[in-house]
């Protein structure tokens, strides 16, 4: 068996205002796996991701990515193997043109200009956004912004992709496109989300967080059909696994009054 790519052990974190976000979280992710992290608001999903991205340092416990321990000395090296997609693409696209933005990471790695150009165009091609390369980020639609933000991370060819709510505020068609795109990825994916239907499509494994602790960790198919467990974590079954209100008649509403 190969060694796991990401190892988190007994990770704890409290924010400066005294609020504890993580009470000892441990899990491992193998190379090429797709893991969903789900949980209520404030359960610690984003805090966990921020640690994996090297934006926060563990106050207790440890994080290892590709055998590299997360600490101040290793930060820049660790960030090369990890790509983070932030929840709001506006926070992530800060350069004047799409091309510059996707090139930002590779240029910072000190790659030669030709190499950067090639990486940028490749990353844009993967997300189907080549035609946007000379546009300005603030003029893109929500779906386009998300695609470009993903390209900006892909251009660094990270081993692990971290995503914070990738499907939030996307229209259904853009959401579907994103899911299909992510299905083609071979990188390790760790996705924090409330979109359990996406988890069903994308991630074989699910980690359920609640108040900074792991409530459950296992196969998505099992966890997402466990209504009691999901309710305890302030979640609901994916809509596709719920009874269809039309077929079952369970939620049939009174018919509207005549004459309207």
């Amino acid at each position: 068996m190969t060694r796991p790519l990401v190892v988190v052990s007994d990770l704890r974190h409290a924010y400066a205002d005294g609020q504890t976000a993580l009470h000892g979280v441990s899990f491992q992710v193998g190379s090429g796996d797709r893991l969903a992290i789900v949980g209520a608001n404030g359960a610690g999903k984003s805090t966990t991701l921020l640690h994996l991205a090297g934006c926060l340092l563990p106050q207790a416990g440890s994080v290892r990515v590709a055998d590299l321990l997360l600490c101040r000395e290793n930060l820049s090296q660790l960030r090369r193997s990890v790509g983070m997609l932030f929840q709001n693409p506006d926070d992530q696209l800060f350069m004047p043109r799409v091309f510059d933005d996707v090139a930002f990471g590779p240029v910072n790695l000190g790659l030669p200009a030709d190499d950067v150009q090639q990486r940028v165009m490749h990353a844009l091609a993967v997300v189907g956004a080549t035609h946007l390369s000379h546009r300005q980020p603030h003029r893109l639609s929500g779906g386009e912004k998300r695609a470009v933000a993903i390209a900006s991370v892909l251009a660094l060819s990270p081993a692990v992709l971290l995503m914070d709510e990738p499907t939030s505020s996307l229209d259904p068609a853009s959401r579907r496109q994103l899911i299909e795109l992510l299905q083609t990825f071979e990188q390790t994916l760790i996705i924090a989300t409330h979109d359990l239907d996406m988890v069903l499509d994308l991630c074989p494994r699910t980690l359920v967080l609640g108040e900074g602790r792991i409530i459950a960790d296992g196969a998505s198919a099992v966890i997402l059909s466990d209504a009691a467990l999901l309710a305890a974590a302030r979640l609901e079954q994916p809509l596709r696994l719920q009874a269809c209100p039309v077929c079952s008649g369970a939620a049939r509403r009174p018919s509207p009054p005549p004459g309207r």
């Binding site: 991205a53 926070d91 930002f104 910072n108």
Partner: peptide, 12 residues
């Protein structure tokens, strides 16, 4: 948040 995003992509 922007600063974090910049750091994640090697901003120096």
């Amino acid at each position: 948040r922007i600063y974090l995003a910049m750091q994640c992509r090697g901003f120096d």
